[in-house]
């Protein structure tokens, strides 16, 4: 098994005919993802990449049976796109768009609280279940099938982790890039929970960043649940100065709890396997899993 996406996912692309949407839709189709069409308001009824274009997400759901949407809409229109997908009853919405205003996301989060949809992102690389479905912008070949779940705030660090896991002779059930913005749809804790409940996932890699308390929340939840599966954790930004935004809108040290050191200490106390160097993620997973099976 896997979480969130698999070979049965019926994916549509919002912002299908734009430059980004087109490029990544092609890549996803080439990977084998079941892309059933896309949405570009005003272009409904025509074809793009040999797939139907719909005017609305509701049309795409009703006519193509879409249950997953990936969003490449520019930041000024992205909040609207997410809410349209949720209103149409799309089960999983993956928002790739970077740079959505915070107040737009306050509205989106509130809107989603009344809907059944799950949002991943925004400002994230997406979700991949190796050999089944890639709903994102990650390089598919890096991810090998296996038993490790990955949840990460950072895109390229997700690829790095997946690559190290593969080089350690292991693979990934699903990798979830949750995004680096101050407001995101699915939290670290929620992603970890999905993996805890997935019978195929034997270990979890949890990659965080400075800023916010998502990793601390997840760590406490893992401990409260009795550390059912080993979790290998890394927090980027041990050398980041306070008060400076490090690329991601959410990656800024505000209070004492926001620092990498504080987060790593909490994770350690909660029984996670914390690595200090990003170069040690793969070998630590291998070591921990060997310990479990031995």
């Amino acid at each position: 098994m896997s979480v969130l996406v698999n070979k049965n996912s019926r994916v549509i692309v919002q912002g299908f005919t734009g430059k980004e949407g087109t490029f990544h839709a092609e890549q996803m189709i080439a990977y084998g993802t079941n892309v059933v069409g896309g949405v570009t308001p005003g272009k409904g009824g025509s074809l793009h990449l040999e797939k139907p274009i719909f005017n609305t997400v509701l049309d795409a759901r009703n006519q193509a049976g879409a249950n997953v949407s990936i969003i490449f809409v520019p930041p000024a229109f992205a909040a609207d796109a997410i809410m349209e997908a949720a209103d149409a009853g799309i089960e999983l919405i993956v928002a790739i768009t970077e740079g959505i205003p915070v107040q737009d996301m306050v509205k989106v989060k509130n809107f989603l609280s009344t809907k059944k949809s799950r949002l991943i992102g925004p400002n994230c690389p997406g979700v991949i279940t190796p050999d089944e479905a890639k709903v994102g912008i990650m390089p598919g070949f890096v991810f090998k099938k296996g038993s490790v779940g990955i949840v990460s705030k950072s895109g390229t660090l997700t690829y790095e982790a997946a690559d190290q896991v593969a080089k350690a002779g292991l693979g990934v059930t699903t990798a979830i890039g949750i995004g680096g913005d101050p407001i995101i749809g699915t939290t670290t804790k929620e992603a970890v929970e999905l993996f805890m409940n997935d019978p195929e996932t034997e270990a979890i890699v949890m990659i965080g960043e400075i800023g916010g308390n998502l990793e601390a929340d997840a760590a406490r939840w893992i401990q409260a649940g009795g550390n059912k599966k080993p979790v290998i954790g890394f927090i980027a930004g041990q050398t980041a100065p306070a008060g400076r935004r490090m690329g991601h809108a959410g990656a800024i040290i505000g209070g004492a709890e926001d620092t990498a050191a504080a987060k790593m200490a909490i994770m350690q106390q909660c029984g996670l396997h914390v690595v200090a160097s990003p170069a040690e993620i793969g070998e630590t997973v291998a070591k921990v899993l060997k310990g479990v099976t031995a």
């Binding site: 990460s152 705030k153 950072s154 895109g155 390229t156 660090l157 790095e160 680096g180 990659i207 960043e209 400075i210 890394f234 980027a236 930004g237 050398t239 980041a240 490090m246 690329g247 991601h248 990656a251 990003p278």
Partner: peptide, 8 residues
């Protein structure tokens, strides 16, 4: 390339 990898 990438903010997280840059911090790491």
């Amino acid at each position: 390339n990438g903010a997280g990898l840059a911090m790491a």
